[in-house]
Amino acid sequence: MKTILPLGFALLCAAMPAAAEDAGEISLTGAEATARAIGFALDEAPPQASSALAAAQAAIAASGHAVCEGGTGRLVALDAPDGVTQVYRLSMPADDTAVFAGGHLRVRVAADGSASEVERIGASCQLIDWDPADPDIDLGVAYLQRPGADRPDPVDLWLSSRIPFAVGVVTPPFVWPLIGGMATSRVEADPDMIEAMTGAE
């Protein structure tokens, strides 16, 4: 589901000034590039079998993290110049007009084949869906709750690239506006504002 605001995300951004210390200090350029790489990889054939992929799959299986109910797990393997392979398992709904807010996993596999601890990106499997024929679709705002994070994850940016309206990544006490897979400066929100936006208790 999405939240409709009278003036969409523009209202949120206008209401809350960006934090002064944000000027150039937190760059999401690398995250945006990774998000684009995830999207490109999903458009291609599944990753070929490799020792890194096998190590990541073994770590994911041992973690016990299930794919979101009603979805399927899609694997993406991204190689980095330092020899580390980042393997993502994305929970994908059957409908291409929806995404899961969370339930996504990442494992980093070193050149020696050792796998990192499995990272879960988003605890909630809430379904964010939309009707392409909705005349007010551009007024929608979806919120992704990411407590404990200090910035959006590349997966959040990839989700934003799929969602046809604005996304707010909530990393209390800040909210990061994302549109079309691109990020702008974070905005500060008080706890009551965050509760109103996300429905958090």
Rank of each mutant, 00 (worst) to 15 (best):
E21A: 15
T34K: 06
I194G: 01
A62Y: 04
A20C: 02
A101W: 06
A18Y: 00
G103T: 03
D190N: 13
D82P: 01
Y88L: 04
Q48L: 14
E69C: 04
L12D: 00
A101D: 10
I128W: 05
G39P: 07
I163Y: 15
P177I: 01
I4L: 09
G24A: 07
V187R: 15
V118L: 15
M92D: 08
A110C: 04
A59M: 11
S27K: 09
A59Q: 14
P132D: 01
R146N: 04
M1S: 08
G103C: 09
T72C: 04
S63R: 05
C125A: 10
A200D: 13
C68K: 09
A31H: 09
G113S: 06
A58R: 07
G71C: 03
G71S: 00
A110W: 01
A14Y: 11
L139P: 03
L75D: 01
I26W: 06
G168N: 04
L159Q: 13
F165Y: 15
D79I: 11
A77F: 00
M92S: 01
Q57C: 02
A55Y: 02
G102Y: 08
R186S: 06
G30W: 11
A54W: 02
Q57I: 00
G103P: 01
M92K: 13
P164K: 13
G140L: 08
A49R: 13
I121W: 07
L7G: 00
P93T: 08
G102T: 11
E201Q: 11
A31M: 04
P147F: 10
S50R: 06
R146H: 07
V187M: 00
A61W: 01
Q126F: 08
G73Q: 10
A200F: 02
E32M: 02
S116C: 11
T29H: 01
D131E: 06
H104N: 07
A15M: 09
L127T: 07
V67C: 07
A110K: 06
V187A: 14
A189L: 09
T3E: 03
D192K: 15
V67S: 10
D129S: 08
A37D: 05
H104L: 05
C13E: 12
M16P: 08
G199H: 03
I163W: 12
V99G: 01
G181M: 07
G168E: 12
T97N: 10
T198F: 03
L178D: 05
G180N: 14
V84F: 08
C68I: 04
V118M: 11
G64W: 02
D22L: 14
D150W: 01
T34P: 00
P17L: 06
F9Y: 00
D192T: 04
E119P: 07
C125G: 15
D136W: 00
P177H: 04
A41C: 01
G199F: 05
G103V: 09
V99C: 05
R89I: 03
D134I: 02
A54I: 04
C68H: 05
A196M: 15
Y143A: 06
C68S: 02
V84H: 06
V170R: 07
T198A: 09
V67L: 04
V155F: 12
K2H: 10
Q48M: 10
V99L: 05
L11H: 01
A20M: 13
D192E: 15
M92F: 09
I38K: 00
G180A: 12
A14D: 10
P154Y: 14
D43S: 12
L53N: 05
